[in-house]
Design a protein around this nucleic acid. Structure first.
Length: 506
RNA sequence: GCCCCCGUCGUCUAGCCCGGUCCAGGACACCGCCCUUUCAAGGCGGAGAUCGCGGGUUCAAAUCCCGCCGGGGGCGCCA
């Protein structure tokens, strides 16, 4: 026994993430992938990526590629998979059909499975009947006891059939879930289930076992929606003499209305968050904290820190509501505190290049102008405004005055001018312009000084002067500190903007 | 309907296994004040959870036991 324990504990930990390529990577699946990754890395184990494309109808190659790209973008690395290969491949289920067939034959031969010739209509009738009688539906087992001769005959007739697993009667299946604790099912709750469809393709519940066993997966970490599949799978493991892995079922992610997070709740794909200007580090960090919490309570964690702290035992077992507000905040933390300036600048530039079409309409021309500027200039602007944007997508909005010389007034700005009257606005701006022109140099630190002088000479409130200058310089009534702005755009551009404001005033 | 899982501030959660230090701690959001040329950021402070409910056990329960209620997931020739 002691020896066995030793052997077990020294066995390399292997986890897997097995998405089906039927859509973009969903946030819930991304989190599952993250937990598999963190668990494997924390324990010095391997992560396997496997594509579950047995659903011919819905699986698409382009989704497989998109999922792989999004996983990489998030920073998840796997040791074996369809793109990198490995000793237990192939890693696409459609390429493994021969393997599955072999195991179906074994089950058939040993009597753990049998051919079922019931038609969909017959099954439908069974289902209806069960419903009417108010009992849960289970396959009747009609074809369980077909004689070999009958089977032979049906086969000869070319009658279509499925293969069903012969579920033993009345047994309790008990297993220790790493998150849920002891979970018990009785096999009577489900009937003989299908493992091969009538078109010859194997079904998920079956192939997942074959693959996990052959790929030497030691820990199956997946969504809680798979919990009730587990007993069926354990039956197959046992029938085939495979070692049963450890299971960990993650609580699902809920939308704001406390139902399973789905398209109805808005953006639910990793890709969508990329489009919206989220940083992979922030998304990874945030998703990790959905249902798991580090012992030291530190929330802003790099990938390395997550790996170091991750412990599957600490996963909270209640479902978690996806709180986009907090993700948004966290993305802001990464933008203003975590990333270094060059890194951030490059991300802004790349985002603008790659996802221009996802910007708001009015920001697109701004993005063009930004991209025309030299790197150093953009970097300087980023350093000035990084405190005020939360997603890369918002950068053009915040940085617009640094790039757009042609100032257009917003409705609020127009309102402000009307309120103080155009005459007063003209007075302020003219005097300010005059003073700037008289100066040899005009730097950010001078901005305030001059504005105060203008206020004093005109006997106006400083606030009014500042606001008016803001309107003249940016067309807006709020935004970056003006001293930072003029410092970056320089004396000449400042004068030009003031002049054009005046000429527009008429 | 049946099976399974879950239930601490609006949300994410700490604490629960090993009852007392918890009239329950942190984070987001919210409110107020400060900083300030505005917005934001930042600093400080505040409000917000009778620990789903009801019974036990105990000197003592968020923590242990039972029942109930509520929420969610699964019951396919989808994964």
């Amino acid at each position: 026994m002691a020896e066995k324990n030793k052997a077990e504990s020294s066995k390399k930990i292997r986890t897997r993430f097995a998405p089906s390529p039927t859509g973009w990577l969903h946030l819930g699946n991304a989190r599952t992938a993250i937990f598999n990754y963190l668990f494997a890395r924390h324990n010095g184990g391997d992560l396997v990526l496997r594509i579950e494309d047995t659903d011919r109808e819905r699986s698409k190659k382009e989704f497989e590629e998109a999922i792989i790209e999004d996983l990489k973008w998030l920073g998840i690395e796997w040791d074996e998979g369809p793109d990198v290969g490995g000793p237990h491949g192939p890693y696409r289920q459609r390429e493994r059909f021969d393997i599955y067939k072999k195991y179906v034959d074994i089950l058939l031969k040993k009597g753990y499975a049998y051919r079922c010739f019931c038609t969909p209509e017959e099954l439908e009738a069974e289902r209806e009947k069960a419903k009417k009688e108010g009992r849960p539906y289970r396959y009747s087992g009609k074809c369980r006891h077909l004689t070999p001769e009958q089977v032979e005959e049906y086969l000869k007739e070319g009658k279509p059939y499925v293969v069903r697993f012969r579920v033993p009667d009345g047994r309790d299946i008990v297993f220790e879930d790493l998150i849920k604790g002891e979970v018990k099912f009785n096999v009577n709750d489900f009937g003989d289930f299908v493992i091969v469809r009538s078109d010859g393709s194997p079904v998920y519940n079956f192939v997942v076992v074959i693959d996990d066993a052959l790929m030497k997966i030691t820990h199956v970490i997946r969504g809680e929606d798979h919990l009730s599949n587990t007993p069926k799978q354990i039956l197959i493991y046992e029938a085939l003499g495979f070692e049963v892995p450890k299971f960990a079922h993650l609580p699902i992610i809920l939308g704001e209305d406390r139902s399973k997070l789905s398209k109805r709740h808005g953006a639910v794909s990793v890709r969508q968050y990329r489009f919206d200007g989220y940083l992979p580090e922030a998304l990874l960090n945030f998703l990790s904290l959905l249902g798991w919490y580090p012992k030291d309570g530190k929330e802003i964690l790099s990938k390395e820190e997550l790996i170091e702290r991750f412990d599957i035992e600490d996963i909270h077992n209640a479902p978690a509501v996806f709180n986009k507000e907090k993700l948004y905040w966290m993305n802001g933390v990464y933008i203003r505190e975590v990333l270094d300036l060059d890194d951030l600048t490059n991300r802004v530039i790349n985002y603008l290049k790659q996802y221009k079409e996802h910007l708001d309409k009015e920001d697109q021309p701004v993005a063009e102008l930004i991209l025309q500027k030299p790197y150093e200039y953009i970097k300087e602007v980023v350093s000035k405004v990084r405190d005020s944007f939360f997603t890369l997508k918002e950068f053009p909005k915040r940085a617009k005055p640094f790039f757009v010389d042609k100032v257009e007034l917003t409705p609020e700005a127009v309102k402000h001018i009307e309120k103080i009257t155009p005459e007063v606005a003209k007075q302020i701006v003219e005097l300010y312009l005059q003073k700037v022109k008289d100066m040899e140099t005009f730097k950010g630190e001078d901005f305030k000084k001059v504005a105060k002088q203008v206020a004093k000479e005109l006997k106006l409130k400083p606030g009014m002067v500042f606001k008016t200058l803001r309107v003249a310089l940016t067309g807006e009534t709020q935004g970056v500190s003006l001293d930072l702005l003029v410092d970056v755009i320089g004396k000449e551009a400042t004068e030009k903007r003031l002049e054009s404001f005046l000429s527009n005033l008429g």
